[in-house]
């Protein structure tokens, strides 16, 4: 329907314009017009934020724009949430992630980008910040019933902490409870295999691809 398409377009535009109020208003309009909440989420917000993510990868837009778009998306989704829930759809449908930069490492820009993109892709994200001791990842993951742990490391020396997490999970006999994804400039597929992680992301795009297609 033309009216529906118009509202979906309004939703998309609100994400590109990073306008929280407009995103919420458009989401309300969508529900009022009888658009399926999942359609509104996928075709309204999600497509637009993916496009913003792509634009950021090419640096057609910059980090602040991406963060603001992701915020607008979160605001809009909060309006859709009750309707989604009523249909038995979890707004954090994609998964719950505990993420941070490992102990000894302060690099956070790459991790912040991954966080913004994950949030906009429908993940509930608990960002622990930088210089995070490995046991903290596990305790927060347990508290929040997370199914994914993401570790960022930018230094070849701090990469080793990613291996520590796997060993610690093994030791606690809870390795199977979590999908462990690793990333950061020095992290490669070979390293992921060597330490026995479940996935790795060269960039935020790949992180989402890997997580969306996970079977664990």
């Amino acid at each position: 329907m033309a009216e529906h398409e118009e509202i979906l377009e309004r939703m998309r535009a609100s994400i590109v314009a990073a306008d929280e109020t407009e995103a919420m208003a458009a989401a309300e309009a969508a529900l009022a017009a009888g658009i399926e909440p999942l359609t509104a989420l996928e075709e309204g917000f999600a497509g637009a934020i993916r496009a913003q993510g792509e634009a950021f990868s090419n640096l057609d837009i910059f980090l602040p724009e991406l963060v603001l778009s992701a915020k607008a998306m979160q605001a809009g989704v909060s309006v859709l949430e009750p309707a989604l829930k009523a249909k038995g759809i979890d707004a954090a449908r994609s998964g719950v992630v505990v993420i941070g930069t490992v102990e000894g490492d302060l690099h956070d820009i790459g991790k912040n980008i991954v966080v913004a993109m994950l949030r906009s892709a429908g993940y509930e994200v608990h960002d622990l910040g930088t210089d995070v001791p490995i046991p903290n990842f596990i305790s927060v993951a347990e508290q929040t019933k997370a199914d994914i742990i993401g570790l960022s490391a930018l230094l070849s020396t701090t990469m080793l902490r990613q291996k520590d997490l796997i060993e610690l999970l093994n030791l606690k006999k809870i390795r199977e409870d979590f999908f462990v994804i690793v990333g950061g400039a020095p992290v490669t597929e070979a390293w992921m295999n060597e330490i026995g992680a479940d996935g790795y992301g060269l960039d935020a795009h790949m992180a989402i691809e890997v997580l969306d297609s996970r079977t664990k």
Partner: peptide, 12 residues
């Protein structure tokens, strides 16, 4: 210096 005498160096 990432490693010393074959051991990776952990910060601190």
């Amino acid at each position: 210096l990432k490693e010393l005498d074959g051991i990776m160096i952990r910060p601190n």
